[in-house]
Measured scan of single mutants.
Amino acid sequence: MGFKLLSKLLVYLTASIMAIASPLAFSVDSSGEYPTVSEIPVGEVRLYQIADGVWSHIATQSFDGAVYPSNGLIVRDGDELLLIDTAWGAKNTAALLAEIEKQIGLPVTRAVSTHFHDDRVGGVDVLRAAGVATYASPSTRRLAEVEGNEIPTHSLEGLSSSGDAVRFGPVELFYPGAAHSTDNLIVYVPSASVLYGGCAIYELSRTSAGNVADADLAEWPTSIERIQQHYPEAQFVIPGHGLPGGLDLLKHTTNVVKAHTNRSVVE
């Protein structure tokens, strides 16, 4: 069995187990497998329904001669939608809004960016022009300005110390501490036991640490421990890039980060 097929099978099995364990909360999309990078042309966006009122959005972007996937989250909030992270750029984010209108038909009224990198804030200006209120932590807003990236308009308070959590509509926002970046936030959907790890969490097929220019490698494993301790009931975990899975993604990420750190020390 090929690795790609095995990865998709694991996603399907995880979703099936969740649907059985929580039949009222989960209505997993039966329309197909989780979209992969090879299936999404740059400039297009796919939506994948995880649970009743919960979707991931998947886009792709060219970077350094390669094409990478990027995940975000959409959560229903009454007759409105909360968006977590842009679709990595203005063109993708405009396509995301169009796809949401086509498939869901509810307005996106608020959006949260989970850290300051372009795959999370690139497209904020498109959201703002569409009347979406954009939010991020003060740290993310400051770092985005320093980096020359787009800056969300509103500040999220109460997320300055490791372990801080605040309720934001249908989700809980959690600051686990520094990891992929010093400002990275985690998003949890309690009604569906869905954990969105953003770039602080890796997919299972990833074996290298990737972009760690703004990471705190020493603190990252401790931050992941905080996530595990705060959300032990999480059933569906979405990484910032690639295929979702279960809580095993947290341990896998820790292993990859520690291996990278150990290699760096040896070198």
Rank of each mutant, 00 (worst) to 15 (best):
M1I: 06
L5T: 14
L5F: 13
L9P: 11
L13I: 15
M18D: 12
M18W: 09
P23Q: 14
P23M: 12
A25T: 15
S27K: 10
G32L: 10
P35D: 15
E44C: 05
V45P: 11
L47S: 02
G53T: 11
S56C: 15
T60F: 15
Q61V: 15
G65L: 08
G65I: 07
A66P: 06
V67N: 15
V67T: 15
Y68I: 15
S70L: 00
N71R: 01
R76E: 09
G78N: 10
D79V: 10
L83A: 05
D85A: 01
D85T: 00
D85N: 03
T86S: 02
G89T: 06
G89F: 03
N92H: 00
T93N: 00
A94T: 15
L97W: 02
E99G: 12
I100C: 02
G105T: 13
R110D: 06
R110Q: 14
A111L: 11
G123L: 04
V124Q: 02
V126S: 06
L127R: 01
A129Y: 11
A130C: 06
G131R: 09
V132D: 03
S137E: 03
S139Y: 09
L143Y: 11
A144M: 04
E145H: 14
G148R: 10
N149T: 09
P152A: 02
S155N: 12
G158E: 09
L159V: 11
L159N: 01
V166G: 05
R167G: 11
P176L: 04
H180M: 01
S181A: 07
L185H: 02
P190C: 06
S191F: 14
Y196S: 00
Y196N: 03
Y196V: 01
A200D: 02
L204V: 13
S208M: 12
A209T: 08
V212M: 07
V212S: 12
A215W: 03
D216M: 07
L217P: 08
P221Q: 08
S223T: 13
I224W: 02
Q228G: 10
H230Y: 08
Y231R: 00
Y231M: 01
Y231H: 05
A234V: 07
F236K: 08
H241E: 00
G242T: 05
G245H: 03
G246P: 08
L247Y: 10
D248L: 09
K251H: 07
H252F: 02
T254Q: 10
T254R: 11
N255Q: 10
V257K: 03
A259C: 04
H260Y: 09
S264F: 09
V265D: 13
V266T: 15
V266F: 13
V266C: 04
